[in-house]
């Protein structure tokens, strides 16, 4: 088995995909770092201060004013109210919600890339893991070996999981190294709050706990990793089912993008919460922002993702072991 995994890893490294992914992440992180830097700069200029309390207070007042507008929808109003109460809580407890520094950049980067960017990177590896064997014609060589088919597929799947872990690590390390040059490498111990509960009345702060940023980041990375594994498994299944890599990628891409769009408009379509793609933003539960559909929480989303994951895995193995290869 280890031989098989090693063999798959060898193929993966020979394809240089991980390096490509590293370069993509690096370039994007540079862009985001610059964008973030520009944003704080203009904000500082506009308000004439870099004092975070003043900026936060100003944001609170601005949000309050937006709330008083009669033209905004109830949904949006609720989300604004939740973020308002959260900001006020941070301010009342004298905690900066965005302590400047590379760790905060990583947090924001992860929160924004969990539902599209990281899954895309995973797809680059996962979507042709099996189908490329078909298109290159090597699948016959592979299957004529005296090894059981499920073992071959399992070795590919393990390789996928390892590659996903590497991608998350690359994302974390690169964003730390690159953003640190601008924002500084400190801030691991900065306090951050978690445990905000969204209830019908708005935000409940009774369970709020204080964490260090490094603890929070490790949890965030774990959640991102989980999402990446699930998305990777789904692409893996498509790669088994569809022989054309491009078609498999297209299907997955469509699903991911529709998820990003759906999350913004499904609030009234309740059964949409069983789609895997509206459940990808797990880090939002840690941060405490309103879920796209009422009643969703971390365990619900994780259960939905687990069911999709298990189904994808079963389908992959059943199809791969049963199918005729010619």
């Amino acid at each position: 088995m280890t031989k098989l995994v090693q063999n798959e890893m060898l193929k993966l490294i020979a394809k240089k995909r991980l390096i490509v992914i590293g370069i993509i992440i690096g370039v994007l992180v540079i862009l985001f770092t610059y964008a973030q830097y520009k944003e704080t700069e203009t904000q500082r200029k506009k308000l004439g201060t870099s004092d975070w309390r003043t900026i936060l207070q100003q944001q609170i007042v601005d949000t309050t004013n937006r709330l008083s507008s009669s033209r905004i929808s109830d949904e949006w109003k609720k989300q604004l109210q939740i973020s308002l109460q959260q900001k006020q809580y941070y301010l009342d407890h004298d905690i900066n919600p965005a302590e400047p520094g590379a760790p905060t950049f990583i947090r924001i980067f992860l929160e924004n890339s969990i539902d599209l960017f990281i899954p895309l990177m995973v797809m680059v590896i996962a979507s042709d893991l099996v189908s490329s064997e078909h298109s290159m014609g090597t699948v016959k060589l592979l299957l004529t070996r005296p090894v059981k088919r499920w073992k071959i597929l399992l070795s590919k799947y393990i390789t996928l999981c390892l590659a996903v872990s590497l991608i998350i690590a690359i994302a974390g390390i690169l964003s730390y190294l690159i953003s640190g040059t601008v924002f500084g490498y400190k801030g691991w111990g900065a306090p951050i709050l978690t445990g905000f509960n969204i209830t019908d009345e708005g935000l409940s702060t009774s369970d709020v706990r204080l964490l260090s940023l490094w603890e929070f980041l490790l949890m965030d990375l774990g959640l991102v990793w989980f999402v990446a594994i699930v998305v990777g498994t789904l692409s893996f299944m498509l790669s088994v089912l569809i022989r054309s890599t491009a078609a498999g990628m297209g299907v997955m891409l469509a699903a991911l993008i529709s998820g990003a769009i759906l999350s913004n408009m499904v609030s009234s379509w309740e059964s949409a919460k069983y789609f895997f793609m509206v459940n990808l933003r797990l880090t939002d539960y840690m941060k405490g922002s309103a879920p796209p559909i009422e009643g969703m929480n971390l365990s619900f989303s994780m259960m939905v993702l687990l069911v999709w994951w298990a189904a994808a895995l079963i389908v992959s193995f059943v199809v791969f072991t049963k199918r005729d290869v010619y």
């Binding site: 872990s165 998350i168 445990g195 971390l298 365990s299």
Partner: peptide, 30 residues
């Protein structure tokens, strides 16, 4: 290395879930 990261992220995930649920407020920020 990949296997090590695999374990690390798995631990992070487990921690996140337990923190989200079991994490009763031992340190209430006053």
């Amino acid at each position: 290395i990949a296997a090590l990261f695999f374990l690390l992220w798995l631990a992070g995930l487990g921690w996140a879930v337990s923190e989200y649920y079991a994490g009763k407020q031992d340190q209430v920020p006053k």
